[in-house]
Amino acid sequence: MSDAAFQSYVDQWLASDPQQRVALGFLDPASRNGHVALAAFEREIVGAAYGIREAQVAAVKLNWWAEELSGARASGGRHPLTRVLFNQPQADVLPMEFWIAPVLAAMGQLEEGTAADFPAQVAATTILHGALARLETGWWFGAGADPGRATAVATQAHLLGSLAMVDEQAEVERLALPMARMARFGLTRAGLRMDGPARRDAVKAQAGDIAAALRQAAAPGAPLSLFRAMTLRQARRRAEQAARAVEPLAVLKQPPAVGGPSTALFAWRAARNSRRATQSR
């Protein structure tokens, strides 16, 4: 990771998800740059999809990524992340569709509004995060690997992150709480900005549904990359804590933890599971 431009994207990813610093120590040095580049690339696509208020500006950025990825196999790429990614053996094996699908999914949801209910919200969110999970799972374990668990984790973790900003994004088109949840607790957009029993109960209910989905995803099954396993552990804990808390939003807004010995032990086990899944394909 000597290239300064590449490192700047890695640093941004690690700043947004500090626990992954622990995970880095358990990666094979030969594959570390590629895995890290993919994680930082995923952050770029998610940031364009959700972090840019003007849909036209987001579309321009995503169109650039579509062009960049379409030509990267031949050119080696122009972007620092693309250059690293397409210098890895996986770049010659994964279908180009795996690369383009997340960008197209991100474009398709730029104008989406608030979902009607939680299942509809999950379905809408899965379109983008499922495409990212398929790319990531294929990268780590081969194009034929099942991305089902990774999709569930990516989707629910995103919904949890959105829920943490429910009060800050009361004016956006796509709210963190689905319409049915808002109606059940008598919440308006204005009510999302103010603390009160209705908002607390709605956030707790949403966190409870997310926690239940993450508990299901935690059951053994399809492989998870080391980074996705770390996300599952932290997101599940935070969702469960928020679902029980008197002030659930305060729990969700706590800075992400880097972790201690238990996190390191979990990362070691998750890395071992990832290696075994790779070897058994």
Rank of each mutant, 00 (worst) to 15 (best):
P147M: 02
E136C: 13
E111A: 12
G142T: 14
F141Y: 05
T126H: 07
Q109E: 14
A152Q: 10
F141R: 10
G113A: 08
E136V: 14
G142M: 14
V153W: 02
R134Y: 12
Q121Y: 01
W139H: 13
A154C: 06
Q121V: 01
R134T: 15
P147C: 07
L135R: 14
A157T: 05
I127H: 09
T114I: 05
D117W: 01
Q121L: 01
R149H: 09
T126N: 06
G108Q: 12
W140M: 10
W139T: 08
T151Y: 04
A115I: 00
A154I: 05
F141D: 03
A145R: 03
F141G: 10
G130F: 01
R149V: 03
T125W: 04
A116R: 11
A143V: 10
A154D: 04
H129D: 15
L132H: 12
Q109K: 12
T125H: 09
T126Q: 13
A115M: 06
G108D: 13
E136D: 15
T114L: 09
Q156F: 04
L135E: 07
A143M: 08
D117L: 02
A152C: 05
A131N: 04
E136I: 13
R149K: 10
G108C: 06
G130I: 06
L132W: 00
A131I: 02
A116L: 06
F118N: 01
A124D: 03
V153T: 06
Q121R: 00
F141Q: 02
L128C: 13
G113Q: 08
A154T: 05
A115S: 07
E111T: 11
H129Q: 15
Q109R: 15
P119G: 11
G144Q: 14
